[in-house]
Simulated assay, not measured.
Amino acid sequence: MTMSSRQMRFHFDWVDHWVEEESAEKSAKDIMHRSAGRMMSIQNFFNDLSLYRWLKKSTKGKVELARVVVFHSDSFVFGLQAVYRVYYSSSSEIREVAAEKHVYASGFYAQGRPPMVSTLELAAGEFIIDVTTRQGEVVDQITFITNQRTVRFGGWGGMAQPYQSNHFARGVMSRVVAFAGTKAGALERVGFFLEPLNWEAIRPIVLTRRLVEEKRALPDRVNCEKWTPQETSVHDFLTRANDDIFFRVASYLIYSTRGEATNQPNQHRS
């Protein structure tokens, strides 16, 4: 599939999927049905992408995750709730809008006890770049990886998510904007949508080059004899590359490359 501005990444059940942006919600629903191996009613899955899109369209401003509330025990994850921070373009107003609580705690997994509630508070400038899980029949543990830290909730049962070669490529250039998932007595599987960071991804590079060009900053070559070849290449790119090459590379950096799926759905259920 060719990368285009009309596609977005949906990660579900340890597999990355590229979906058409206009039909992302339907595509995600189909992917979740296939992963579960059954047709599900609306009560058996959730998808917050529609809320995220509505907030962006109605406010015409910046929309970002402010926090994620996680419902869990010491052994399992029962669900989550996303809370968005909305910046209105028509004013300086900032509001928080909570998505629906997606909590599924019943039967064996709940063990007759209410779930614990934990919150991942995202500081200013902090965003989620990846979400990993331990899972068997349901999600045993969920891990949020932000651009600043790693936070885990739940237990240590199930299988750990295999390493994916595109993990860092996805994280560096994209951020999580919405969650989706399925239920089966607990949170069965969790998925998330990612959007490229665009200007946020290349801002430090562009501003550094501009400052050097305006002689408001000087290239720092202290201990340059100890630089790795990669560090030397980055330095030369920022200070010497012609404008055409610079803007071509900067444009490429806006998007993360498509990674190969290392596993197929339904292969990780114990």
Rank of each mutant, 00 (worst) to 15 (best):
M1W: 10
M1L: 13
M3V: 15
S4R: 13
Q7S: 15
Q7H: 15
R9G: 05
R9I: 11
D13C: 11
D16G: 14
E21G: 12
A24W: 05
E25H: 08
D30S: 15
I31Q: 07
S35K: 08
G37K: 08
G37T: 06
S41T: 15
Q43H: 15
N44H: 14
N47A: 03
L49T: 04
K56G: 13
T59M: 05
K60L: 11
L65K: 06
A66C: 08
V69E: 12
V69K: 13
F71Y: 15
F71I: 04
S73R: 04
S73K: 03
D74T: 09
L80I: 15
Q81F: 06
V86D: 07
Y88P: 00
S91E: 04
E93A: 08
I94F: 05
E96R: 14
A98F: 07
A98S: 15
Y104C: 13
Y104H: 12
A105D: 10
A105E: 07
F108W: 12
Y109D: 02
Q111S: 14
M116Q: 15
M116L: 14
T119E: 14
E121D: 11
E121F: 07
I128T: 01
I129G: 11
T132G: 03
Q141W: 00
T143E: 02
F144S: 01
I145N: 05
I145P: 00
I145E: 06
I145K: 09
Q148D: 04
R149I: 01
R149E: 05
V151H: 01
R152W: 00
G157R: 00
M159E: 06
Q161D: 07
Y163F: 09
S165N: 12
H167S: 12
V172C: 09
V176L: 09
V177Q: 03
A180F: 03
K183L: 05
G185I: 01
R189T: 09
L197S: 04
A201T: 07
I202E: 05
R203W: 06
I205D: 11
I205E: 08
I205W: 12
L207C: 07
L207A: 09
R209E: 01
R209L: 02
L211D: 05
L211P: 00
L211Y: 07
V212T: 01
E213K: 13
E214F: 08
E214M: 12
K215W: 02
R216I: 05
L218C: 04
P219S: 01
D220H: 03
R221M: 10
V222K: 13
E225I: 06
K226S: 14
Q230P: 00
E231H: 09
S233L: 15
D236Y: 09
T239Y: 03
D243I: 06
F246E: 10
F247K: 11
S251H: 12
I254V: 14
Y255C: 09
R258S: 11
A261L: 07
Q264K: 12
H268K: 04
R269I: 09
S270N: 11
